[in-house]
Design a protein around this nucleic acid. Structure first.
Lengths: 305, 305
DNA sequence: TCATATATACTCATTAAGAGCATATATAGC
DNA sequence: GCTATATATGCTCTTAATGAGTATATATGA
């Protein structure tokens, strides 16, 4: 034991007062694409001050959002806490960000903006984003120049040079583009910047964090079911997974794995399609819900890396 | 779009000032067991106020700890942010907790307490914790009584009834014991409580969060190497993984997988043992380091669930 | 009847993972 | 030299998960 560690570090030496704000990333699915609720022409998330009467942060967030919007929140998860100095005022601003899922519902369309409006390169369900990926690869190669470590990093994060695309790395991809000056938020810009909406403050970074987290979350927990209607077809489930992961999947294998997991049970009802055979409606199996959540049963998605 | 969502939620309506504190969970390995730095007879973590001059929370944490203790921090990660009302003062206390790894070093023994002093049931490397697990199982069965959902949850979280033990569920296990009144921190206690040190405030809950996170982290990133000396034997590496995961592993398979991953490279040096053949010293392969971190290359641990 | 879309049953190859057996190899101590 | 000890390595097996493909019912609207 080194001696100076035995001196307790002073607690509350000089308490610095902070303004504390809760930031909510509210996610739902519409048009087979993940959407978020935004304010200010898509450049901000709803946010509000932390109230004294909030007993816990999570409860505070839920109450506040439900009160303001009337929306019921599903799976809720703390993302990250950021701090900015408030210049000249001698105190700081702390922002605690949360992500919450909202069930798809015909009565409202919460969704204002597609997440992929902000990160067009993250939607790789079809080949439409390939040209953009090629542009990014070229611009990154130029930025990396002859720095091989830097290029190594680009290649792994963006799945170039024989590397597989890993959908959970969306935050790292955004950070890399930021460093390379390819997004308008970069302190120095390597104009022209890439397509994709930007946001105020570090909100787009928070959104990239949310995208990473939701992609990881749906793989290991049944959180997707908080985005789908109570009853859904297997195709809807697959499309929701594909929408979030930004990747297409093999239908037969998807069903094999879904039914192995016993996460869903069929109902007596059927979909009413415009054409073709009506699809059976399923529901999230309530009896195994908690069980699977905790055991880390994973939903089928192509294995990463 | 439902109409009232178009009204922006007021920002900064009534800023509530908070005291903000950084809490550090400093982890290192000694005696083949993960240890943490604690204060106040093991009942608190080092913590200190957030300073105005800290540009980012993570940097603020690093500077503050390094200044106070002289320790270099390795892998650092934000854990969770908690809030408590400060009664009668009209404002709140926000605590932002971080976990950081500290390299094993002969010059200091940072470690004051074994993590398993707080969670004796989490160390399942040998059969020594089996009797305790049996006691827990009985007490939980009594608590669950005839509530089958409740028992279902107990069984999956604690690996009872044909369920596999999942080392990453340490937080859920602690929360379950809390609910069942089997830890002294519970608001209602189901005395006698289980063995294991407790801590002030929700610090023991933060520690359970840290344990979950580090177990997940070492599986998917090379963060363990920030706990080991620069040069280490393969047995040391395996023992470090076992110490953190709380599980024993198969030596041959461990080595097969480690060498497949190409995460380590041999040095020219050897260990000097008291007995037996000297072991070759390895180092974390610097050239593939970043690569593997980002690709999510995983270190071998028995598959969960 | 045909187009369309759901639903299901298979096969096949590859890989990872868990477990075990055997056998070198290098040191200290007797 | 011999033995105990611990490192280091090679090999076989089995099982399960994964990715991909082929084929074929089945139920609707037009």
């Amino acid at each position: 034991m080194i001696s100076h560690l035995e001196t307790p570090i002073p607690i509350h030496a000089q308490p610095v007062l902070c303004e504390t704000e809760l930031v909510a990333v509210l996610v739902s699915i519409s048009n087979n694409t993940p959407h978020i609720l935004t304010l200010d022409q898509g450049s901000a998330f709803p946010s509000g001050p932390l109230m004294v009467e909030h007993r816990s942060l999570q409860k505070g967030m839920r109450n506040w959002v439900e009160q303001q919007t009337g929306l019921k929140l599903g799976h809720t998860e703390q993302l990250y806490t950021f701090a900015d100095p408030l210049h000249g005022r001698g105190h700081q601003m702390v922002r605690i960000s949360y992500m919450a899922f909202i069930r798809q519902n015909s009565e409202h369309t919460l969704a204002e903006r597609s997440i992929y409006d902000y990160f067009p390169w993250e939607d790789r369900r079809d080949r439409a984003s390939d040209p953009l990926l090629h542009i990014i690869a070229e611009r990154l190669r130029h930025w990396a120049d002859n720095n091989s470590n830097r290029w190594q990093r680009c290649a792994t994060v963006f799945g170039l040079d024989n590397h597989a695309w890993n959908d959970e790395l969306s935050l790292q991809r955004y950070e890399l583009l930021w460093e390379a000056g390819l997004v308008p938020e970069s302190t120095w810009q390597n104009a022209p910047v890439l397509p994709g909406l930007s946001m105020h403050r570090d909100y787009r970074r928070i959104l990239a964090t949310a995208l990473s987290r939701m992609r990881a979350k749906i793989r290991y927990t049944p959180a997707v079911f908080d985005l789908l209607p109570r009853q859904f077809t297997l195709l809807q489930l697959q499309q929701a997974m594909e929408a979030l992961a930004g990747r297409a999947m093999h239908k037969q294998n998807f069903r094999r794995l879904v039914q192995q997991q016993k996460l869903v049970s069929r109902t007596a009802e059927y979909d009413s399609p415009t054409q073709g055979r009506p699809a059976q409606l399923y529901q999230f199996a309530p009896e195994t819900a908690e069980h699977c959540y905790l055991a880390g049963a994973k939903l089928p998605l192509p294995a990463i890396s």
